[in-house]
């Protein structure tokens, strides 16, 4: 009996110490890991959308409550002012959800640019919604009060040839992002008022 207790105690103490240590390391690295993941997964798209911004949109991000979930908003500083926000939304594509980052100019309520972050579309066909710049740029200047649709559905966007469903998915994601933006706008504007960039490059 005493032996069993001893074995039990040894393993328990070992596991407890290692658990505590890991919890400490995790809490110490968590913020940096989140930053790195955003930088390498969403960073390239964000850079494209916020071309010419003076800050690092990933550092200057904040979270806004949206129902039960939290939505991450990225802020771009232009001419010293937080002028552009970007948020990600999803739409159903040909194979699963397409994630689209949408940059919106808060002073004019117009789309500044979009970029696909994640997708599972057919390589070389549907994947062109991510790589084809002429498809992407069509979204520029669309007002947040409009809804985007591909031309086949009576809208204003030329779908990528042979990838109507993927293009539709992107449109849906953009519409979702715009709807989210309209819903969260009061909160976002409130946060932008007190906004101070953590790192500005001249």
């Amino acid at each position: 009996m005493r032996d069993i207790l001893k074995l039990f105690l040894a393993v328990t103490i070992f596991s407890a110490i290692s658990g505590g240590l890991l919890a400490f390391v995790r809490s110490a690295t968590q913020a940096r890991i989140e930053y790195q993941q955003l930088k390498f997964v969403k960073g390239p798209t964000l850079k494209e959308i916020m071309k010419g911004c003076q800050n690092d949109p990933i550092v200057d991000r904040f979270k806004v409550k949206c129902g039960k979930k939290e939505k991450t908003i990225f802020v771009g500083v232009f001419n010293g002012k937080p002028k552009v926000i970007a948020l990600e939304a999803f739409g159903k594509g040909f194979h699963g959800d397409i994630g689209v980052m949408v940059g919106i100019d808060v002073t004019t309520d117009k789309i500044l640019g979009i970029g696909v972050t994640t997708h599972g579309e057919t390589p070389g066909v549907g994947s062109r919604v991510k790589t084809d710049p002429s498809f992407r740029t069509q979204f520029k200047g669309v007002s947040v009060n409009e809804s985007v649709k591909v031309k086949a559905d009576g809208g204003q966007i030329d779908a990528v040839t042979g990838a109507t469903i993927s293009s539709r998915g992107v449109c849906k994601a953009v519409n979702n992002a715009l709807a989210l933006y309209k819903k969260l706008k009061p909160e976002i504007l409130k946060r932008l008022k007190n906004f101070k960039s953590k790192k500005l490059s001249s």
Partner: peptide
């Protein structure tokens, strides 16, 4: 964890 944080 450290690798994720510093050399992603």
């Amino acid at each position: 964890l450290v690798m994720q944080a510093f050399t992603y």
